[in-house]
Design a protein around this nucleic acid. Sequence first.
DNA 1: TTGACACGCAACCATTTGGTTGCCTATTAT
DNA 2: ATAATAGGCAACCAAATGGTTGCGTGTCAA
Lengths: 104, 104
Amino acid sequence: MDDVFKALADASRRDLLDRLHARNGQSLSELCDGLAMTRQAVTKHLSILEAANLVATVKHGREKLHYLNPVPIHQIGERWIKKFERGRMAALSELKRKLEERDD
Amino acid sequence: MDDVFKALADASRRDLLDRLHARNGQSLSELCDGLAMTRQAVTKHLSILEAANLVATVKHGREKLHYLNPVPIHQIGERWIKKFERGRMAALSELKRKLEERDD
DNA sequence: TTGACACGCAACCATTTGGTTGCCTATTAT
DNA sequence: ATAATAGGCAACCAAATGGTTGCGTGTCAA
């Protein structure tokens, strides 16, 4: 879980996920296109995403194709974000009240 | 948005959010209790969370009370995670298929 | 078969990060 | 008044991070 959060912390990596979401199964060079980074930098980002199980790869000849794995993102939604959903409105109104208690 | 992802990337900070979720409005020293960190380290984490708008603070006498702001977490769920929810099953089955294409 | 192409590996570098220690200020309680 | 309590500020440090360059390897096409 920590790997996933760490992987998602970088904007370049989130962009790579976006690109794969737009078109799945791209090769490394395809993912490099239009990015202001070296291929090796992209490789590093992708290997971090792969270590976090967010992308899976298939070697196809001399190309390495990248596929998005939506499971970890979904799990963060389910196991983490939804927890803070409970009592959200209550927390919000309490927060509002406390922030305004200047003149009590 | 990037601030929020970066803030959530650290396990100590997620733990602090958890603690505030368990009991809102804690002071700095309360939040330090039982943590294997200096008060100053916790202060830094909290200020990162504050900069990301994930917690808001109210000074109350000599204490600084911390309140959880659930909005940014909710927004990540809505604006980011839900995007990868669409076509999740399709992506998964495609992924499975591609990972098994060893013997095509 | 011989380039060209797609990718991997490793060393290196600057900056950020997560943490510390030391000291200072403000508020509360005795 | 004075001591204890809650917190702020700044300098410093090691390690992680995001990026580079250089070079090596496997695969496809002319």
